[in-house]
Amino acid sequence: MNVWAQRLAAVTCVLLSVGLLIWSSPDARGYEFPRMVALTMVVLSVGLAVMAFKPGKLLMVADIESIPMRIIWPMLVILLGLAFLAPRLGFFSTSFLVFMATALVFSPERFTMRRLGIMVFVGLCFTFTLYLLFVLLLNVHLPRALLF
C-alpha cells in the first residue's frame, strides 16, 4: 500500500513538474528563471520516482497517511460555499453560516435544540467580535453585498 502511494506521489510530481516546464518554455523573453526552477523540479521529481520504483526494499520514510474523504468532504463543500457566497452575501452573514454549518456537521455530540441554541449564541458572539475587530478597530473596507 505504502509503496504504491509513494509511487503515485512520485508520478504526480514528475507529471506536474514536466507540465510546469512545458508551460515555462514559450518562445518569448521573460521566462528564463521559471524555466530554471521547473527544470530543477523535474530533476528532483525524477529522483523521487527512481527511489519509489527501485526494486527491492523501499528506502523511503513512511510519511504517507490516508485521506479520510468520508469525513472531510462536508468541510470542503463548506469552504467552497464560503468562497462562493462571501462576496455575494456579505462577509459577516457568510461567516455566521460557515461557523454554524461547521459546528452542526462536525459536533460529536447528539443534536438537541439546546445545543443549537448555544451554537447560535456562540456564532453571533463570534460574528460580532469579527465586526468589532475588522470594521471598527482595523477599518477594513469589506466589499458591499446584499446582507451584512
Binding site: P74, V77, G81, L89, V105, S107, F111
Partner: peptide, 20 residues
C-alpha cells in the same frame, strides 16, 4: 441522524442565497 446533520448545515445556504 448523520444525514440530518449534513442537511441542517447545508440547508441554510440556498435560503439565504435566494435573498441576494
Amino acid at each position: 441522524n448523520l444525514m440530518k446533520r449534513y442537511l441542517m448545515g447545508l440547508l441554510a445556504v440556498p435560503v439565504v442565497f435566494g435573498l441576494s
